[in-house]
Amino acid sequence: MAKIMTKVILNNKGKFTEPLFVLLGKSQCNGLHSKVSVKEIKIPIPGGHIAGKLWGNDQQQPILALHGWQDNCGVWDPLAPMLCDKKPILAIDLPGHGFSSWIAPGALQDTWDVVQYIIELKNYFKWDKFSILGHSLGSVAGLRYAGLYPKNVDFFIAIENLVYEDHDIDHFLKYLPKALEKSQMSQHALNNEPPESTMEELTYKLYIAMNKSVDKQNMHYLTQRAIRPSKRDLSKFCYTRDIRLKYLSMKPPNIKFLETLFSRLSFPLLYIKAANSSYKLSDEHCLRVREILENNNPYYESHTVGGSHHVHINNPERLAPIIVDFFRKHKIIQE
């Protein structure tokens, strides 16, 4: 489909804006959600672009949906159709993921980079306030942004993570030297075509790398943006992600600083934890953050549902009613 420009209302002024992004195509979902409008988007940023999908009415300001580490915006395909008739969903591929541009040569990916991407999007769309739906890395980074700019956030929905687990110094002494060496090596392989294989083998490797968190029959939600045809042999395939993502910078966090950030949150905040996740998040720091939110934010609520780390892919029907109730409770939607 040819690229066209479109005018959309993605700010909170209630007026048409100038054209904000390139609309790459419009499609209808298959299956149960065949009447849901989905648009592929491409948002320019310095040095490249952010790709993604806009679910629902493009005349309303959407919820910004942020995926997890080495995932892409396809993870929201099962859940977004259940919510976007209530509130539109703007699900993006973070830089280095999916169809978005890779970061600049010589740069390293860091968990705080996502905060910068959020600032870029807010300024680009001229949002005064906006809402975030995050999973794993997307949720952790989104909450860091919210702690820094609490007046900019209307509400927040966190799936699985609020923060990362705290590790002792020995963990970082063992992890960082190897990670930094491999990260530097990856800088010299950016111009190389990624390893090639069959679609089936790459899908299976991704399934294993994700600790089988996504059911096999649901892997297509990820692979449609995670795997592309090889440029050398169109019968073979390779991954789309920036290879430097494998060595995401995980430096020892300043626990006191992070906990102070979360004590500043006073907007409606919904936290949904998957009971069968491989990420237990039961260390002292994670429990302390939940305690801080419970004691300081009267609009904080948490729920536990059955499912894996990627419960929003495998079991979206367990999340949607909780989220819609949250919308109603805080008058986010008018019915």
Rank of each mutant, 00 (worst) to 15 (best):
Q116A: 15
P44E: 03
S266H: 14
M185W: 14
F130S: 01
G68A: 10
K231C: 07
S34R: 08
N211A: 11
E120Y: 14
A275C: 03
Q60G: 00
N191T: 06
W112Q: 13
A51T: 01
P95L: 10
K53T: 08
E196F: 01
L281E: 03
H220K: 10
L180F: 15
L222K: 02
G25M: 02
R244D: 02
G68D: 07
F155P: 04
Q109P: 10
T198M: 03
D215P: 01
M1Q: 12
L54F: 14
N57H: 05
L173E: 15
T203I: 03
A80F: 01
N192L: 14
G147D: 05
I333K: 02
F21Q: 08
V140A: 15
D128E: 12
K273A: 15
I208L: 10
I89H: 08
Q116K: 13
E291W: 09
L66N: 05
L248T: 01
Q187F: 14
K126P: 00
A65T: 03
P316I: 09
I9D: 03
N57M: 03
W102M: 02
G96K: 10
N297T: 00
H309A: 06
D77K: 06
T6N: 04
F326W: 10
M219S: 07
L10S: 04
R318D: 12
I9A: 08
L143F: 09
M1G: 12
E335S: 03
S37I: 12
G25S: 06
L66T: 03
K231Y: 02
N297Y: 06
K122D: 07
K216V: 11
V36F: 06
I92N: 05
V140W: 15
I119Y: 14
E291D: 11
N295K: 13
Q61P: 00
K53E: 05
P150G: 09
W55M: 06
Y124A: 06
P88E: 03
A107P: 00
R264Q: 12
M250P: 00
I169V: 13
I63E: 00
M1T: 10
D154L: 14
Y247P: 00
